[in-house]
């Protein structure tokens, strides 16, 4: 497989930081990290991260492009904002994490089996189809995210919850037929397509 990122890898071999500054939301903050480690120590999920935030920032500065963008780390962030509240340098760490995840996704470098990454894609596809979130379909696709057998198992387990939601009018089984949508679905699609083109053009030079 030819690597579409090859050219960019060359270009930024010594300067991944600049790439992050140019493309990642709040990326210009990365250079301000003073490596105190408070964020890593504050993150409730910290011990489960492949590379906690402090390390991610150092890796960016050390030019470790593939390791950072391919890492599952940023996808672990639950947006609890603990790190932001505590960072003595005032880095918007949460936002940078989401920014890095988004950028990795756009380049197609995100880890392929990371559940948060997968769910995000499901959510996006679900939403953009009709302009409204189809909760029934989203729920089901979430159940079946990890294969058919798993999906059945989860669905059975969640039966009671689903029933309860139905009874209280929180879930319409007819949604399975397509569900309600916004008035101008086509217009939305066009808008999104345009936005995507603009974004792509922006990062085209980084895609090499």
């Amino acid at each position: 497989m030819s690597n579409p990122n090859q050219a960019m890898v060359e270009k930024y071999r010594s300067n991944f930081l600049k790439e992050v500054e140019a493309n990642v939301e709040e990326g210009h903050w990365v250079k301000m990290c003073m490596q105190c480690g408070v964020c890593s120590g504050s993150c409730p999920l910290g011990p489960h991260w492949e590379h906690p935030p402090q390390e991610i920032f150092m890796m960016i500065r050390a030019g470790k492009r593939e390791e950072v963008l391919g890492s599952s780390s940023m996808w672990m962030c639950t947006s609890c904002y603990n790190c932001i509240a505590r960072c003595p340098r005032g880095l918007p760490i949460t936002h940078i994490m989401h920014g890095l995840a988004t950028y990795a996704k756009r380049l197609g470098l995100q880890p392929k089996t990371q559940p948060t990454a997968k769910f995000s894609q499901l959510f996006w596809s679900n939403l953009t189809k009709t302009g409204r979130v189809n909760e029934l379909k989203l729920g089901l696709s979430l159940y079946f995210m990890n294969g058919f057998a798993n999906g059945i198992k989860t669905a059975l387990k969640m039966q009671d919850v689903g029933l309860g939601m139905y009874k209280t009018g929180r879930l319409n089984p007819l949604e399975i037929l397509g569900g309600h949508s916004i008035k101008d679905t086509g217009g939305l699609q066009k808008m999104l397509k345009k936005a995507f083109e603009i974004e792509e053009a922006k990062i085209a030079e980084y895609k090499g």
């Binding site: 930081l17 250079k31 301000m32 003073m34 150092m58 500065r61 050390a62 340098r89």
Partner: peptide, 14 residues
């Protein structure tokens, strides 16, 4: 002083 250096783009590596 430290921040000023970082803003100016000096790389720091522990």
């Amino acid at each position: 002083v430290y921040r000023g250096g970082q803003e100016a783009g000096v790389a720091f590596s522990k």
